[in-house]
Protein backbone atom coordinates (compact mmCIF):
# COMPACT_ATOMS: atom_id res chain seq x y z
CA UNK A 1 0.00 0.00 0.00
CA UNK A 2 2.85 2.26 0.63
CA UNK A 3 3.58 2.44 -2.99
CA UNK A 4 0.12 3.71 -3.84
CA UNK A 5 0.13 6.38 -1.16
CA UNK A 6 3.33 7.76 -2.54
CA UNK A 7 1.78 8.13 -5.97
CA UNK A 8 -1.44 9.71 -4.78
CA UNK A 9 0.41 12.64 -3.28
CA UNK A 10 1.99 13.50 -6.59
CA UNK A 11 0.12 15.74 -9.10
CA UNK A 12 -1.37 13.92 -12.06
CA UNK A 13 1.15 13.86 -14.90
CA UNK A 14 0.41 16.28 -17.71
CA UNK A 15 -0.55 14.80 -21.05
CA UNK A 16 1.97 15.70 -23.65
CA UNK A 17 0.15 17.96 -26.10
CA UNK A 18 3.12 18.45 -28.34
CA UNK A 19 2.00 15.83 -30.84
CA UNK A 20 -1.49 17.33 -30.97
CA UNK A 21 -0.31 20.13 -33.22
CA UNK A 22 1.29 17.60 -35.54
CA UNK A 23 -2.04 15.85 -36.00
CA UNK A 24 -3.83 19.13 -36.64
CA UNK A 25 -1.13 20.19 -39.09
CA UNK A 26 -1.62 16.98 -41.00
CA UNK A 27 -5.34 17.73 -41.23
CA UNK A 28 -4.52 21.26 -42.31
CA UNK A 29 -2.23 20.09 -45.10
CA UNK A 30 -4.81 17.56 -46.18
CA UNK A 31 -7.45 20.26 -46.63
CA UNK A 32 -5.00 22.61 -48.31
CA UNK A 33 -4.16 19.96 -50.88
CA UNK A 34 -7.77 18.89 -51.39
CA UNK A 35 -9.06 22.40 -52.06
CA UNK A 36 -6.60 23.12 -54.86
CA UNK A 37 -7.62 20.03 -56.82
CA UNK A 38 -9.95 20.51 -59.76
CA UNK A 39 -12.92 18.27 -60.44
CA UNK A 40 -11.75 17.55 -63.95
CA UNK A 41 -8.73 18.39 -66.04
CA UNK A 42 -9.59 20.59 -68.96
CA UNK A 43 -8.81 19.57 -72.51
CA UNK A 44 -10.32 22.72 -73.95
CA UNK A 45 -9.15 26.27 -73.49
CA UNK A 46 -11.71 28.38 -71.69
CA UNK A 47 -11.43 32.10 -71.44
CA UNK A 48 -14.87 33.12 -70.23
CA UNK A 49 -16.52 36.31 -71.45
CA UNK A 50 -17.12 39.11 -69.00
CA UNK A 51 -20.45 40.26 -67.66
CA UNK A 52 -21.59 42.60 -64.93
CA UNK A 53 -25.02 41.19 -64.08
CA UNK A 54 -23.70 37.99 -62.59
CA UNK A 55 -25.15 35.72 -59.98
CA UNK A 56 -23.33 33.33 -57.75
CA UNK A 57 -23.74 29.69 -58.60
CA UNK A 58 -25.07 28.17 -55.43
CA UNK A 59 -25.06 24.57 -54.23
CA UNK A 60 -22.02 23.39 -56.09
CA UNK A 61 -22.94 19.75 -55.58
CA UNK A 62 -26.01 20.24 -57.78
CA UNK A 63 -24.15 21.78 -60.69
CA UNK A 64 -23.01 19.86 -63.75
CA UNK A 65 -20.52 21.49 -66.05
CA UNK A 66 -20.37 21.51 -69.81
CA UNK A 67 -17.14 22.91 -71.22
CA UNK A 68 -17.00 24.27 -74.75
CA UNK A 69 -13.86 25.64 -76.30
CA UNK A 70 -11.00 25.11 -78.72
CA UNK A 71 -8.92 22.05 -77.75
CA UNK A 72 -5.59 22.69 -76.05
CA UNK A 73 -4.01 19.77 -77.88
CA UNK A 74 -4.66 21.00 -81.40
CA UNK A 75 -2.70 18.17 -83.04
CA UNK A 76 -4.89 15.52 -81.50
CA UNK A 77 -8.29 17.19 -81.57
CA UNK A 78 -8.00 19.92 -84.19
CA UNK A 79 -8.78 23.58 -83.72
CA UNK A 80 -12.57 23.53 -83.99
CA UNK A 81 -14.36 24.16 -80.66
CA UNK A 82 -15.27 20.93 -78.91
CA UNK A 83 -17.46 19.90 -76.01
CA UNK A 84 -15.99 18.35 -72.91
CA UNK A 85 -18.11 16.43 -70.43
CA UNK A 86 -16.46 15.13 -67.27
CA UNK A 87 -13.01 14.00 -68.34
CA UNK A 88 -13.47 13.36 -72.01
CA UNK A 89 -14.14 15.02 -75.31
CA UNK A 90 -17.71 14.45 -76.37
CA UNK A 91 -20.19 15.26 -79.05
CA UNK A 92 -23.53 16.99 -78.78
CA UNK A 93 -25.27 13.60 -78.69
CA UNK A 94 -23.54 12.57 -75.47
CA UNK A 95 -25.21 15.35 -73.49
CA UNK A 96 -28.45 13.42 -73.02
CA UNK A 97 -26.59 10.56 -71.42
CA UNK A 98 -24.40 12.88 -69.39
CA UNK A 99 -27.38 14.71 -67.87
CA UNK A 100 -29.15 11.42 -67.21
CA UNK A 101 -26.08 10.10 -65.38
CA UNK A 102 -25.76 13.33 -63.38
CA UNK A 103 -29.41 13.00 -62.38
CA UNK A 104 -28.98 9.42 -61.25
CA UNK A 105 -26.12 10.48 -59.01
CA UNK A 106 -28.29 12.94 -57.05
CA UNK A 107 -31.07 12.46 -54.54
CA UNK A 108 -34.54 12.58 -55.96
CA UNK A 109 -35.48 15.68 -53.94
CA UNK A 110 -32.52 17.59 -55.33
CA UNK A 111 -33.11 16.80 -58.98
CA UNK A 112 -35.40 19.75 -59.80
CA UNK A 113 -32.77 22.11 -58.36
CA UNK A 114 -29.98 20.90 -60.59
CA UNK A 115 -28.26 23.52 -62.69
CA UNK A 116 -26.15 23.09 -65.77
CA UNK A 117 -23.29 25.50 -66.06
CA UNK A 118 -22.15 26.22 -69.60
CA UNK A 119 -18.50 27.19 -69.53
CA UNK A 120 -17.67 28.36 -72.99
CA UNK A 121 -14.77 30.24 -74.45
CA UNK A 122 -15.59 33.69 -75.74
CA UNK A 123 -14.40 32.87 -79.23
CA UNK A 124 -16.90 30.01 -79.57
CA UNK A 125 -19.68 30.52 -82.10
CA UNK A 126 -23.31 30.36 -81.01
CA UNK A 127 -24.05 27.37 -83.28
CA UNK A 128 -22.49 24.84 -80.96
CA UNK A 129 -23.90 26.58 -77.87
CA UNK A 130 -27.38 26.50 -79.40
CA UNK A 131 -27.03 22.78 -80.15
CA UNK A 132 -26.11 22.20 -76.50
CA UNK A 133 -29.09 24.25 -75.35
CA UNK A 134 -31.47 22.30 -77.59
CA UNK A 135 -30.13 19.01 -76.18
CA UNK A 136 -30.63 20.31 -72.65
CA UNK A 137 -34.20 21.25 -73.47
CA UNK A 138 -34.84 17.75 -74.76
CA UNK A 139 -33.84 16.20 -71.44
CA UNK A 140 -35.61 18.88 -69.43
CA UNK A 141 -32.48 20.31 -67.86
CA UNK A 142 -33.83 23.82 -68.05
CA UNK A 143 -31.89 25.66 -65.38
CA UNK A 144 -28.72 26.87 -66.99
CA UNK A 145 -26.00 29.33 -66.19
CA UNK A 146 -23.70 30.99 -68.68
CA UNK A 147 -20.41 31.03 -66.85
CA UNK A 148 -18.71 34.40 -67.02
CA UNK A 149 -16.08 36.28 -65.15
CA UNK A 150 -16.98 39.43 -63.31
CA UNK A 151 -16.45 42.33 -65.66
CA UNK A 152 -16.97 46.04 -65.54
CA UNK A 153 -20.39 47.45 -66.22
CA UNK A 154 -20.17 49.46 -69.43
CA UNK A 155 -22.51 52.02 -67.89
CA UNK A 156 -20.67 52.10 -64.56
CA UNK A 157 -19.54 55.71 -64.91
CA UNK A 158 -22.89 56.95 -66.17
CA UNK A 159 -24.56 57.71 -62.85
Amino acid sequence: MGKFNKNAKKATPEINTGSMSDIIFMLLFFFMVITTMRESTLFVRINPPQASEVQKLEKKSLVSYIYIGPPIDAQKFGTEPRIQLNDQMSGVRDITQFIEAERQARDEVDRPLMTTSIKADKSVKMGIVTDVKQELRKVNALKINYSTSKGKDIHANRQ
Binding site: S21, F25, F31, M32, Q55, K56, K143, N145
Partner: peptide, 30 residues
Protein backbone atom coordinates in the same frame (compact mmCIF):
# COMPACT_ATOMS: atom_id res chain seq x y z
CA UNK B 1 0.57 25.40 -30.77
CA UNK B 2 -2.50 23.28 -31.44
CA UNK B 3 -4.72 26.34 -30.97
CA UNK B 4 -2.80 28.18 -33.64
CA UNK B 5 -3.02 25.31 -36.07
CA UNK B 6 -6.71 24.91 -35.29
CA UNK B 7 -7.23 28.51 -36.27
CA UNK B 8 -5.41 27.92 -39.54
CA UNK B 9 -7.42 24.77 -40.14
CA UNK B 10 -10.77 26.47 -39.61
CA UNK B 11 -9.66 29.34 -41.83
CA UNK B 12 -8.94 26.99 -44.71
CA UNK B 13 -12.09 25.02 -44.09
CA UNK B 14 -14.15 28.19 -44.42
CA UNK B 15 -12.34 29.83 -47.32
CA UNK B 16 -12.21 26.71 -49.46
CA UNK B 17 -15.96 26.84 -50.14
CA UNK B 18 -16.05 30.55 -50.96
CA UNK B 19 -14.71 30.56 -54.52
CA UNK B 20 -18.04 30.12 -56.25
CA UNK B 21 -18.60 30.36 -59.95
CA UNK B 22 -20.27 33.39 -61.40
CA UNK B 23 -22.56 33.57 -64.35
CA UNK B 24 -25.78 34.73 -65.93
CA UNK B 25 -28.63 32.47 -64.87
CA UNK B 26 -31.29 31.61 -67.43
CA UNK B 27 -34.19 29.27 -67.69
CA UNK B 28 -34.72 27.46 -70.97
CA UNK B 29 -38.26 27.04 -72.25
CA UNK B 30 -39.58 23.49 -71.87
Amino acid sequence: MSDISFLLLTFFLLTSSINTDLGIARKLPP
